[in-house]
Write a protein that binds this DNA or RNA. Structure first.
Length: 271
DNA sequence: CCAGCCCCCTGTCGGC
DNA sequence: TGCCGACAGGGGGCTG
């Protein structure tokens, strides 16, 4: 569900309601929602800490507290939002943090893949994250260096968070479509021009996603409950059988790295 | 290093 | 209408 643009949208909307607030208490109905430390320790330690900053690293939401980092990964169907009531009418809320102004930070997740963490450093839970694709230091040269010697399918590599952080299934397809690169191409077979195009495309599609406040295909909603609009601007993802916006040929769907993969066989040639 | 599978879970949708 | 398999935006782990 949420990829970099959706997580970034959540982070931006949570800053105003959370920064400066103190945790009064923590409620959960399913201990496994807390990945580390134990749910009991998590609750005890988080209580009394104040939110100082809300940031994003890869697809993690990272809250800087007094002593710890409070991190959240939404995985496929997770949602994180502030509610004015402790009964938001959401049957999938598994963790609630009561704030000192009476509001609640709710973590909701239908599929229960999402997790929360209380740590000192992101390295504890994600030691091998790749570069942030929207940072200035993610240059085309860096991308070329990282592709060098990698023989994996380029789509599988884009999904690998140790290669580049934050790209998921949707934006991988959209990036390869825009760069006109077939998803099954070997990563080390891209020529200099294709690498420059891919670099520009990754950044462009992610920034566009953020500007449209994320994509709401199914579960994702902005913290205010509204749908993002990024999905209205997709060219490949979910467009199977529909005419390519560039050439008119039907978009094809295949499976790559066990994920549905959409591309234009005419604009993204196999070789 | 890499492809392929399984698993963690639940909801939705299309086919029969 | 009802059942059933396939599939879903993520990621960790194992095998060969």
């Amino acid at each position: 569900m949420p990829e970099l643009p959706e997580v970034e949208t959540v982070v931006r909307s949570l800053r105003e309601p959370l920064v400066g607030r103190c945790v009064e208490s923590v409620w959960y109905d399913w201990a496994k929602v807390v990945k580390t430390p134990s749910a009991e320790q998590f609750t005890a330690r988080l209580q009394g800490q104040t939110f100082h900053a809300i940031t994003r690293r890869a697809k993690y939401i990272v809250c800087q507290m007094d002593q710890d980092l409070f991190a959240v990964h939404l995985k496929m169907t997770g949602r994180l939002y502030v509610s004015e009531t402790d009964h938001p009418g959401d049957r999938w809320v598994h963790l609630r943090v009561r704030l000192d102004n009476g509001l609640h930070l709710c973590f909701s997740d239908a599929r229960r893949f999402g997790r929360v963490y209380l740590i000192n450093d992101m390295y504890e839970i994600a030691p091998n994250l790749g570069p942030e694709p929207l940072e200035a230091d993610f240059t085309a040269d860096i991308l070329r260096e990282r592709l060098n010697g990698r023989h994996r399918q380029i789509k599988a590599l884009l999904l690998d968070q140790s290669f580049v952080a934050g790209v998921g299934n949707i934006y991988a397809d959209e990036s390869l479509y825009r760069a006109q690169i077939h998803p099954l191409r070997a990563a080390d077979s891209l020529n200099a021009d294709e690498i420059i195009r891919l670099h520009e495309s990754i950044r462009h599609t992610l920034e566009l996603g953020i500007n449209h406040e994320g994509a709401s295909i199914n579960w994702y909603r902005k913290p205010d409950g509204e749908r993002g609009e990024s999905q209205d601007y997709f060219n490949a993802y979910g467009k199977e059988g529909q005419p390519c916006t560039r050439c008119g040929q039907p978009i094809v769907k295949i499976r790559v790295a066990q994920r549905g993969t959409h591309y234009c066989p005419n604009c993204q040639p196999e070789k």
